[in-house]
Nucleic acid binder design. Structure first.
Lengths: 212, 212
DNA sequence: CAGAAATTTGAAGACTTCTTCAGTGACGAA
DNA sequence: TTCGTCACTGAAGAAGTCTTCAAATTTCTG
């Protein structure tokens, strides 16, 4: 579709196809798989991206950026710091073992030492997520919602670290750690660190009618 | 060396060489690299392990087992729960970005979805490490050393998760998170969860002579 | 030491992947 | 319509890998 809309569309479509291919076949995905995903031959892919590595890198970069952007959008709507913290924690954990974004991160993490650029990509994402948590924590502290028992940098770093680790555990198919269990593990730490009970929305929903 | 000691030695040497090769070239290491590391040709490797995949799997299995065994040995000598907890946390974090064991785990984690057996390997290791922490925590609680603010299962799961995540961050080359910083981040959580100040041995050594 | 068994080599075949490129078809401009 | 450009195909070459195997070498046994 969209045959005559210029290079930009085709390149965007190729990046999208490459993302799907990486998620399906790993960070060292073959050119053939990318071409198949895009509905083209390998020659056609090379026509647009003479260097396949740069295409894969661009796709992975776009994938990490998108994950961060979507998280920021999701929490932008929420004002209450406690509710914001809970929603942020929920949005950082994969929904299940098939979560595309977290799959991508695991692939990149495994390749990070051999391809240092992926390490840079993940480091940047990590630091920004820590800052995102710090803003929520400091705002809550300033408003008197939270009583921080540790520095916001410490709490932020640990929360993102826990997200990452439980993402890996879920990807590895841990039999008992699913989305809900991992959420509670993060929330238990957050409760300890913020001195706030952090009643989850799910818990609230249980005790109240669908619309009050 | 040791040319006449039979198959077992040769197979053990091959597993050792494969471990080095995996750490150097990733979970999908080539037969050629294994042979080079072992000082043999690819044909000779196949003579002992007709199926290369089974050799790599065996090497990776041995690598994770060894990591766990060494941790257990290291902490077995220590009696005081607080000191034991601090030492355990220290031993679970890579010393630097070149730490072989943690390199291996990152490689396996990246490949876990494509090779579910590696997911099983890592899951098994994770669960045993959690149990290891639980024993320390419960012992300390029973002795009155710790005042656990969360269930020992929660604390154990979160501590191992933090170890894993900071291992990944260090492998990815995070500019500010090194062994010491990561230790403090874990210790800060452990202090909160156990209600114990967990003075580190390093800190103690600073304030006391080498032999009292 | 001589023969048997175990071990290793080196090369060949089959396979996969990357990359190049001559040729094909579609589309727009003149 | 004709020409030229763009997008793409499909085949061929180059490089790397896995696997097999006959032959050579080393080690063991009597």
């Amino acid at each position: 579709m969209a045959k005559t809309q210029g290079q930009k569309d085709r390149r965007a479509a190729l990046i999208s196809a490459t993302q799907k291919a990486v998620i399906a076949h790993g960070a060292d995905v073959k050119l053939t798989e990318i071409a198949k995903q895009a509905g083209l031959t390998s020659g056609a892919v090379l026509y647009h991206y003479p260097d396949v590595q740069s295409l894969i890198l661009e796709a992975n970069r776009a994938g990490t950026e998108r994950f961060y952007d979507e998280r920021m959008q999701m929490i932008a709507k929420i004002d209450d710091p406690a509710e914001k913290l809970v929603s942020t924690i929920r949005s950082g954990l994969p929904t299940d073992a098939d979560d595309d974004a977290v799959r991508l991160f695991c692939e990149l993490g495994g390749a990070a030492r051999r391809h240092p650029i992926y390490g840079t990509l993940l480091t940047s994402l990590y630091d920004r997520q820590v800052a995102m948590y710090q803003v929520i924590l400091e705002t809550g502290a300033a408003r008197g919602t939270f009583d921080l028992r540790q520095e916001s940098l410490t709490i932020g770093r640990n929360l993102v670290a826990l997200e990452d680790a439980y993402g890996y555990r879920m990807m590895a198919g841990h039999p008992t750690i699913d989305h809900e269990v991992a959420c509670e593990l993060l929330l238990d730490y957050a409760r300890l660190a913020t001195g706030h009970p952090l009643i989850t929305k799910a818990a609230l929903d249980e005790g109240t009618p669908t619309h009050d």
